[in-house]
Design a protein around this nucleic acid. Structure first.
Length: 110
RNA sequence: UAAGUAAACGAAACGGUCGCGCCGGUUACUCAUAACCGGUGAGGAAAGUCCGGACUCCGAAGAGCGUGGAUGCCUGCUAACGGCAGGUGGGGGCGACCCUAAGGAUAGUGCAACAGAAAAUAAAUGCUCCGCAUUUUUGCGGAGCGAUUGUGGAAACGUGCGGUAAGAGCGCACGGGAACGAUGGCAACUGAAGUUCCGUGUAAACCCCAUCCGGAGCAACUUUGGGAAUGUUAAGCCUGCUCGGCGUGUUCCCUUGAAAGGCUUGAGCGCGUCGGUGACGAUGCGUCGAGAUAGAUGACCGUUAUUACAGAACCCGGCUUAUUGUUUGCUUACACG
RNA sequence: CGGGGUGUAGCGCAGGUGGUAGCGCACUUGACUGGGGGUCAAGGGGCCGCAGGUUCAAGUCCUGUCACUCCGA
C-alpha cells in the first residue's frame, strides 16, 4: 500500500484504543490522528476466532478492504481494525461494507 | 451387486484486471530507497511436539559410575531412533488379512479384597485302624490318610482302571505341562527318539539381567559501541634492529535498545541401470524448487465435473492425530455362465 | 522452544497404597405451617474426557489421544 505503513508496537496500539471508535456488525474500527503525514494500519484478530488459517483469512480480507478504499481515506491517522468472532466465514463484500460504514461514521472519508 | 480387506496416486488447472514477500537486471539518487521488466513463492499432514539426529554454546564432552531415565523376541536397514523391513512365537477373523511392551516368577522381597477349612512351610468338617470308657448313641487318646465339602479368577497334573484298613502318581493306560535333548536355522526358534520331574498368579508391583543416554536449546549462538585503568609477553602496521606510537590483550564502569549473520545446496529432488525377498544401498545423467520478522499467496471475473482437513518461522528422518477424492489387487456372500 | 497441572452427579470438589465412588449445594417426595421461607426425614441421579492394553479385578497401573489451563525463555 503506497501511503500506509503497518502499526506494530504495543504502545501505539494502546494509544489508538483511547481514540474514536465505531463498532460494526463484524468489525470494530479505531482511529486517532498521528504526527506523520501518512496513515498507519493495525489489524487484530483474537485467538478465540479460530485457527491460524481462519485468522489469516480475516486479516487478508480486512487488509484488502482497506487497500481498495485507501484513496478515499484522510491521511495522517492511525487506524486499527479488530475482527469480531462472528466475522468468521463471511464474504469479502460483507467485511468491506462493514468497514466502509464504520469509516463513514468516524468521518474518515474525504 | 453387496460387505470387507490391503495398497497406490492426487490435494485443482488455464486465462484476464488490481495487490503482496524475496531474488536478479535496468534507470534515477550521496545513501536509504523508488519506478519498470523478468523469475519465484506453503502441506500431505506445514498441525500435535511424541521420539531420533544435524548445528551451536556450556572450560573438555574422552573414560567410568549411577537410590537417574529410556528401550526390551531375532536378524537386518539407517547418520540415528522408541522408526522401518524380513522372520519367530502368541492371539483374532469363514477368509483376504490384522494385532502383539513378546527377557527373567528354581536371585530375593511384596501383594492376592469378598467367599472359602485352606490363597503357599496346607487340614477345619472328616475317613480308616488301634486302645480305654460307656447299656446304646457316643466321648477321650494315639497312629495313618489326603478321597469328600457350599467358595473362588486360580485349590495342589486331568480322566479311567487297578490297588488299600481307609487312601494317595502308589502303579498302569491315554492325555497335559516343565527341564535336558537329535535335526534344521546366522539367530529368535524348532523340538524326533528318549530320560527325569509335576503346589498358583502377578514383574504395564519393587526388582534382576541386557543395551543405550553429559546438559541446554535458533528467544541457541556469533558479530557490530563509549570511557577509564593496567600491561608491552606473543602476532600485525609505522622501521633493517632497539625504543616509542597505533592497535591488540586483560579488568572495571556506562548503554539493556537496535541491526546484521545464523537462514537454506540438503543424510536434497527427478529419471534410469545394477545388487538385495525387502527396508535399503551403489552408480550414471539431469536439476535448484519459499526464506518472512506482527509474519508475504489475497479481491473480482470467465471455462472445465469440484472440494475436506488445514498456513512454513533453524533444518532433516520418523511417529501420531485431522481430513477429501479417484483407482487397483485380493477375500466372502448371492445371482448368471 | 521447553516444563507443569486438570478432566469424577446439574455446579464446586474428595477418593490416587488396585477390590463394586463419596461430600456440600442443587433436584424429587413426604412431614411440620393457613401459605411461602426454613427445618427434619427419605430418595434419585455417574460406564470417573476418549480409545486400547496389563490384571481374576482398573477411577486408580501402562500406552496412545483429545480438550482446557498455568509457568519459563
Amino acid at each position: 500500500m503506497k501511503n500506509t505503513q503497518s502499526l506494530k508496537l504495543n504502545r501505539d496500539f494502546r494509544r489508538v484504543y483511547k481514540g474514536a471508535s465505531h463498532a460494526g456488525g463484524y468489525t470494530v474500527v479505531y482511529a486517532r490522528k498521528n504526527r506523520y503525514g501518512f496513515n498507519r494500519l493495525g489489524l487484530t484478530v483474537s485467538k478465540t476466532a479460530g485457527k491460524a488459517v481462519v485468522r489469516n483469512r480475516l486479516k487478508r480480507l480486512m487488509r484488502e478492504s482497506y487497500r481498495l478504499m485507501e484513496d478515499d481515506i484522510r491521511e495522517g491517522y492511525d487506524i486499527i481494525i479488530v475482527a469480531r468472532n462472528r466475522a468468521v466465514g463471511k464474504t469479502f463484500e460483507q467485511i468491506r461494507g462493514d468497514i466502509s460504514f464504520s469509516l463513514n461514521k468516524l468521518e474518515m472519508k474525504k
